[in-house]
Structure formats: structure tokens, C-alpha cells
């Protein structure tokens, strides 16, 4: 079966690939573009580690038909760094021990970015809501919530 050409913006760069019909965006990013920052956890929408931003909105790449992002902008953790510097969220995650095994971290960071882009000063409850589609099996969430709040307040680590 013929493959379909697909063009979209990936972390600010235009990319063009050929996809099989039915390919999800996670597979397209990882296997065709080589961006390994979105992770495969479940392929069922349940874990959130594949989260990416599509035109600035949080989406699950495993449940996104690749062809639907034609002409749109896709942001992944790979594009979060600001040049050589860590993004404030990355800095805050590191300072607050918000990652243990790190497998949920790409999705957590994208969910947190989606929140702060819209709401730079969220309440704790809003942070909890924003990461409610993301599962972390290690940290117990508290360090992640604290990291997002720390990044929002522009502050460094809270002890």
C-alpha cells in the first residue's frame, strides 16, 4: 500500500516524511523523525508519557493519527531547551527531584508547559489538574507539583 507524504513543523523545523495509513504520531516522531523524547508507555491514552503540544495544545501522540498534523506545529521535549540552556521547567524539575526513573518526565514537562503557557501563575489545584492525565510510578507526584509551582513562581528549588 502506498505511503502518504506528510509535512509538519517539528520543534520549529519543517519536516517531511512518508507514513503508512493509520500510523500514530508517536511512531512517526520516534521511528521516522528520530525524536526519541516522547516515550511509548501504553499506546492507549492511559499514561501520558507520549504527550506533545500540537499548535500549542496538549495532545497524546499515541492517539493522534499522524496524518492529522499535516501543516500543524508539533512540539516535543526535544524542543524545550532554549539553546544550550535548560527551560525553567527543566531546571525546576531537576532542582526539585521531580524525576526518578524519568520515564514520565517528557510527558509531565509537556503537560506543565501547556499549563504555564496559558496560565503562568497556576494554583496547586490547577497544577494537579494539568498533570492528571500523566502517570508517574516513582515520585508520588508531590515533587512534580512542587517543581511546576517553582517554575511558575520563577523561584529556585523549595527545599
Amino acid at each position: 500500500m502506498a505511503k502518504t507524504p506528510l509535512q509538519f513543523r517539528h520543534n520549529g523545523r519543517d519536516v517531511a516524511i512518508f507514513v503508512d495509513g493509520g500510523t500514530n504520531l508517536l511512531v512517526a516522531l520516534r521511528e521516522l523523525i528520530g525524536d526519541m523524547t516522547p516515550k511509548f508507555g501504553c499506546g492507549q491514552g492511559g499514561c501520558g508519557t507520549c504527550s506533545v503540544l500540537i499548535d500549542g495544545e496538549l495532545h497524546l501522540s499515541c492517539l493522534t493519527l499522524a496524518e492529522t498534523v499535516a501543516g500543524r506545529s508539533v512540539e516535543t521535549l526535544d524542543g524545550l531547551k532554549e539553546g544550550p540552556n535548560l527551560h525553567p521547567l527543566q531546571r525546576a524539575f531537576a532542582d526539585n527531584f521531580a524525576a526518578q526513573c524519568g520515564y514520565c518526565t517528557p510527558g509531565m514537562l509537556m503537560a506543565a508547559k501547556a499549563l504555564l503557557d496559558r496560565n503562568p501563575q497556576p494554583s496547586r489545584a490547577e497544577v494537579v489538574e494539568a498533570i492528571s492525565g500523566n502517570i508517574c510510578r516513582c515520585t508520588g507526584y508531590e515533587p512534580i507539583i512542587n517543581a511546576v509551582l517553582a517554575a511558575a513562581s520563577g523561584g529556585r528549588a523549595r527545599a
Binding site: G45, G48, S51, L58, H59, L60, T64, A111, E129, S132
Partner: peptide, 9 residues
């Protein structure tokens, strides 16, 4: 419904 990503989709 869902988390924020599911509500966006």
C-alpha cells in the same frame, strides 16, 4: 472527562 489531553482531543 479524561485528563486535559483527552479533553483537547
Amino acid at each position: 472527562i479524561g485528563g486535559p489531553a483527552v479533553r483537547n482531543m
